[in-house]
């Protein structure tokens, strides 16, 4: 009885809502996940060459870092509205906006990671006859990986939160459910979508942490205290 009526009485937590709208919830979650995933992957693909360019010369580094920082101060609402004439009401609009936001964090972290590679390691590799490409791929990237992954995790988590704003053009994943529920004060839907959104962020963060540990087995040899200190430093950057 209580289960049936919670939709009528507009309770915060409603089992009946979860049962009857499970398809809607799944669709929104799936949209949320793929918009986030596409955005951060494209963000990484764009940020990487930008970071390499910025590292090559100080003259490029200033404008690249400046531009990505300015992008971050553009309100997300305005960003999505301004991209509308270019893309129309499409997921590409939301993805583009999210890619632009992720660049700020990604470029900074990749750059910081690459710059923290010890000079001795690079010199040793060069002395062994490594060319620039192999040096980057086999020495610098693995050593920069913890910082890169830290940035990737922050970018992913904040992109998951920002995706909700995409509901202004109807492509906001779980944000759409929140927006739809607002006019009728549908509490169960707002709460469920919000909780799912935070859960997604937590799960994504933990998954990426697992990936990072798999990719960098050598960091686990260090004591935990060192690792915490290193993470604290990376995040402070």
């Amino acid at each position: 009885m209580a289960g049936q009526n919670c939709l009528v009485t507009n309770d915060w937590i409603c089992g009946e809502y979860l049962r009857s709208r499970s398809q809607e919830l799944t669709d929104a979650t799936v949209q949320h996940i793929w918009i986030t995933a596409v955005s951060v992957v494209i963000g990484l693909l764009v940020a990487f060459p930008l970071a390499l360019l910025a590292r090559r010369s100080r003259r490029i580094a200033g404008p690249v870092l400046g531009l990505t920082t300015v992008l971050y101060t553009v309100p997300s609402l305005a960003m999505f509205s301004l991209l509308l004439p270019l893309f129309g009401l499409s997921a590409a609009l939301v993805v583009t906006g999210l890619v632009l936001y992720s660049l700020t964090i990604l470029v900074r972290n990749i750059l910081a990671g690459l710059e923290a590679v010890p000079q001795e390691a690079k010199d040793a590799a060069k002395g062994m006859g490594y060319g620039p490409g192999r040096l980057l791929w086999e020495v610098e990237l693995p050593l920069a990986l913890p910082a890169v992954m830290a940035g990737f995790r922050i970018a992913t988590v904040s992109t998951i939160a920002l995706t909700t704003v995409g509901s202004i053009v109807g492509r906001g994943g779980l944000g759409n459910l929140i927006e739809d529920a607002l006019p009728s004060f549908f509490k169960a839907q707002v709460l469920t979508a919000s909780v799912l959104c935070v859960l997604l962020a937590v799960v994504a963060d933990l998954l990426l942490l697992g990936v990072q540990r798999l990719l960098t087995p050598w960091t686990r040899i260090r004591t935990t205290r060192d690792a915490v200190g290193a993470v604290a430093k990376v995040k402070a950057v």
Binding site: R153, I154, V157, S158, I160, A161, L162, T164, V165, S167, L174, G175, I178, E179, A181, L182, F185, F186, K187, V190, L191, A193, S194, C197, V198, A201, V202, D205, V231, A232, K235
Partner: peptide, 21 residues
């Protein structure tokens, strides 16, 4: 340190929506 990461995970829109209902 972890709090700043948690902060980024908070969707402001969702929090506002929760308050509005």
């Amino acid at each position: 340190v972890n709090l700043s990461n948690v902060g980024r995970a908070i969707p402001v829109f969702a929090v506002l929506a929760l308050f509005m209902v």
